[in-house]
């Protein structure tokens, strides 16, 4: 596909979206424009209800925008989905409890098979092993802890080698210690498997640790307030948390959030 070479990555142009009946429409996304380059990790952070999930769902093709346009590698979202180029990691792992972990990770390969042709499909077993789930492949989701389930869900999204990975607060259901371990695990995996990622989060350190850029959204209507570049060197490890640059970025992001929330406490 020649367009892919010209226009790789995700381009969100002037997207708007409102919810509600005609009389009481609420604007949730207002003229949102954003690009995510190939192999770029972009986080979206903002107050609750500002439209982060809505933006992610528009990019995933799960809801249609009222206006504007989303392109993935130069084609429409619909075409990208038909071609299985979108990987989704929802907020809950959403694994199928009647399938083993391995069969859950294989799932994307067994639906819409037409799109399997000529792509770099990963070996589900190898993938699970690299997510530290090698011993759990034949187990069922109900036998796994929340952290392991979420890793399986991430492996499920990586297995068919999508062009863009969409993650909506994938670690928010985990406790803080587990969260930190899962995010470092994702960081490590992603650093050796670079993909365009749109990552919604509520956690400032998480956004800084993982991202190349942080999109700060404001609410009512949901819009992009500013985009903060994270120029911490890669590959990053846990040690980055302790650096002065990290602390400075944390201050910058928190200030931005403070401002978009109208001075309310973050």
């Amino acid at each position: 596909m020649s367009a892919a070479v010209v226009d790789a990555g995700v381009r969100v142009s002037n997207v708007s979206k409102s919810f509600g009946a005609d009389g009481a429409r609420v604007k949730v996304l207002d003229d949102v424009s954003l690009t995510i380059g190939m192999g770029e990790f972009v986080s979206v952070i903002g107050p609750s209800g500002c439209g982060k999930s809505t933006l992610l769902k528009v990019v995933a093709g799960l809801i249609d925008a009222d206006g504007g346009k989303v392109e993935i590698d130069g084609s429409t979202v619909r075409a990208a989905a038909a071609d299985k180029r979108i990987g989704l990691v929802p907020q809950s792992p959403a694994l199928l409890p009647w399938r083993t972990v391995l069969d859950n990770v294989r799932l994307p390969l067994t639906v819409n098979r037409r799109a399997n042709a000529g792509r770099a499909i990963r070996d589900p077993k190898e993938l699970l092993a690299s997510f530290g789930l090698g011993h759990a492949m034949q187990k069922y989701p109900g036998q796994l802890s929340g952290g392991m389930q979420q890793r399986a869900a991430i492996a499920r999204a990586f297995v068919f080698d999508p062009a863009i990975m969409l993650m909506d607060e994938p670690f928010s259901a985990l406790d803080e210690m587990n969260r930190d371990q899962q995010r470092l695990g994702l960081l490590e995996f992603w650093q050796s498997n670079r993909k365009a990622v749109l990552f919604v989060t509520h956690s400032v350190p998480e956004a800084i640790m993982l991202s190349d850029r942080i999109v700060v959204m404001a609410a009512h209507p949901g819009r992009i307030d500013r985009i903060i570049d994270v120029d911490l060197p890669r590959p990053r490890t846990e040690e980055a948390y302790a650096s002065d640059e990290f602390r400075e970025l944390e201050r910058v992001v928190r200030t931005a959030l403070h401002e978009v929330m109208g001075g309310a406490h973050v």
């Binding site: 530290g132 187990k139 796994l144 802890s145 392991m148 470092l184 695990g185 846990e238 302790a242």
Partner: peptide, 29 residues
Amino acid sequence: MSETSTIDATASMAAAELADRRTRRDAPS
């Protein structure tokens, strides 16, 4: 942020696994 700052990501995932193993439920069999 954390006292185990010398441990790399792989090691922390292994630690997560250990913790996981303790919490998992009975096998259906």
